[in-house]
């Protein structure tokens, strides 16, 4: 594989990590966050600026960056998650807008809208990204299959009923939001490592929205669907870069195309492409059996 192809795969993997972060928040616990890009911003800038100015190893500053994101998520969650879901969506969105302007405001450190590019080169970045993607997917899968996942699905379908069975909805939501934001934060750092430059535009509101769109396209309750959608919807438009429509590269139209896909999904397949299905050996075996049965006839 050449560098270009490796780059595409890395981008897609980072997209998967971002979407899995949103999956935990939105699909498990039913909170519609529109500010996940903001957590990517916080951790990425934190990590690389600290690494540069204090000369600390990047692994340490990455942990600090993620911790900073987690703290911000906690502060937002405490007043907001007691209220109606709409507040959460609006506040996370406001938070995203605020983060972009903070980056511009602190131009002295962040280099403003031009972008911060003093990011050290990390050698095995490809394998780091692949490894972390696998880890994050495993993490989310384990979480979904644990008691926390069950309680989340319960509170998502019926908050009042969940409370009546001892699920501490408020606390669980806060924890889930913080964890999901940590994963977004991780995606932000990897994005910086891969591209060697971070700009406020790169982490705009559109990115937060794009991740939600990927998620719903793949399937509202399916981690498999979310991961596949996160990967493919990032990859396909990149490979179609040279195709033109109305004299404009198809790449430019990608958001429009995503949106049309989502409108189709909402209208015709409201649970996303995979709905609640998950990949497992058992479903695969089930598919085979069905095929055999059909052949047997």
């Amino acid at each position: 594989m050449n560098n270009y192809q490796l780059g595409l795969i890395m981008n897609s993997c980072i997209s998967v990590i971002g979407v899995v972060g949103v999956f935990i928040i939105t699909s498990l616990a039913g909170m519609f966050s529109l500010g996940q890009a903001a957590f990517m911003t916080i951790s990425a800038y934190f990590t690389f600026i600290l690494a540069k100015t204090l000369g600390l190893p990047i692994l340490l500053t990455a942990v600090m960056g993620i911790a900073a994101s987690a703290l911000c998520a906690y502060i937002i969650a405490v007043p907001t998650l007691k209220l109606r879901k709409d507040y959460f969506a609006l506040i996370t969105m406001g938070f995203g807008e605020m983060m972009s302007s903070i980056v511009i405001m602190l131009e002295k450190y962040t280099n403003g809208s031009i972008g911060y590019s003093r990011i050290p080169k990390v050698k095995p970045v490809f394998w780091i990204i692949i490894g972390l993607t696998a880890f994050v997917i495993f993490f989310a899968w384990s979480l979904k299959r644990s008691r926390f996942g069950r309680m989340c699905i319960a509170l998502k379908t019926d908050e009042t009923a969940a409370k009546s069975f001892g699920v501490d909805v408020y606390r669980l939501k806060i924890r889930i939001f913080v964890i999901g934001s940590c994963i977004s934060a991780l995606a932000g750092i990897l994005y910086g490592l891969k591209n060697r430059v971070i700009t406020p535009d790169g982490f705009s509101w559109n990115l937060s929205a794009e991740m939600q769109i990927f998620l719903f396209f793949g399937g509202t309750n399916s981690l498999t669907g979310a991961a596949i959608a996160g990967f493919m919807l990032k990859l396909i438009p990149e490979t179609l870069r040279t195709v033109k429509l109305f004299g404009v590269s198809l790449q430019e139209f990608r958001t429009v195309i995503y949106c049309i896909l989502i409108l189709l999904v909402i209208n015709f397949r409201p649970n996303g492409m995979l709905g609640e299905k998950e990949f497992s050996i058992r479903t695969l075996a089930g598919l085979f059996r069905r095929k055999e049965a059909r052949n047997g006839k």
Partner: peptide
């Protein structure tokens, strides 16, 4: 799983 949810907090 519905029944388990009741026990999950414990």
């Amino acid at each position: 799983d519905n029944v388990k949810v009741s026990l999950d907090h414990s």
